[in-house]
Design a protein around this nucleic acid. Structure first.
Lengths: 145, 145
DNA sequence: TCTTGACCTCAAGTCGACTTGAATTGGCAC
DNA sequence: GTGCCAATTCAAGTCGACTTGAGGTCAAGA
């Protein structure tokens, strides 16, 4: 059994079978054949899935990721793109850091109303000049709870 | 003219009129009246919009934000929730930082193939244990370009 | 041989945050 | 007074990344 069926890949990778099929359709992964109806995957698909997860977490879309493999299945990463992504990520990190500090302050601040706290208002100003008017550039976070 | 019509609010805040109507429908902002059909807003709505932008950037959903105003329009922020959000944000920042470093390395690495670079593989391992199998906890980034 | 149940396909649905389009209204300038 | 144009309502569409559901297939165990 050198090949893994979809259930095995799902179990080992944590990626649902439906998502694996979806990824295959998108050209992100490929099955090596079938046993009856069932897809068979090369164990290397696990590494590929890890790479996909990495890329997704770094902010690449599935379509962008699909471009990262050459026809022969070899990884083909554009170093410039990587550097650019790293920079975008860096900016995001800075914003989020400011945000985190702001939240921490607001959580600890003793002013009766947040709107009366100078620090909170300052953060608001900073946010207003950065986050506002910057449509389509938002950074969704997982909902709490 | 102490009140602003929707076009004015849109212009000053950078938030499209359609979004303002949408926010009103959601209960995030309120107009003080109409001039004919046209909504009129109190200038304070600008501050509120800034706060909404701040909250969105920090990862609150619109529904969560709607809960942050009491019936009287007063800000009513749950400090525990803020602290919790700050912590989530902090974790995200750490992950993204690792990711950024990984991308920077990959962009600079001279190994012929990324898969042969020990550092890259190490990052992959780290990502695999963090990002993989952690469905629904991803952090989408704005697409490059 | 027959049953079972996991996998298959394909279309459609979901979720959040908006945007878009069609049809209508009405303040303001002339 | 009348025409223009921006604003209004309401329904429907969009986008990305999947998930779900209905109906069908087949390898393997009893």
């Amino acid at each position: 059994m050198k090949y893994l069926d979809i259930a095995e890949v799902a179990k080992r990778s944590g990626v649902p079978a439906s998502t694996l099929r979806f990824y295959e359709m998108k050209g992100l992964i490929a099955s090596v054949g079938r046993r009856g109806l069932r897809r068979l995957f090369d164990p290397g698909v696990l590494e590929r899935l890890a790479l996909i997860a990495l890329g997704r977490a770094a902010g690449f879309s599935l379509d962008e990721l699909a471009l990262m493999w050459a026809a022969d299945g070899q990884l083909r990463i554009d170093r410039q793109m990587l550097a650019a992504k790293a920079n975008v990520l860096d900016q995001t990190i800075h914003k989020l850091s400011a945000m985190r500090d702001g939240l921490r302050h607001a959580a600890a601040c003793t002013a009766s109303s947040h709107m009366e706290c100078p620090t909170f208002r300052r953060i608001l100003q900073a946010a207003a000049s950065g986050a506002m008017g910057t449509r389509k550039k938002r950074t969704p976070q997982p909902p709490l709870k």
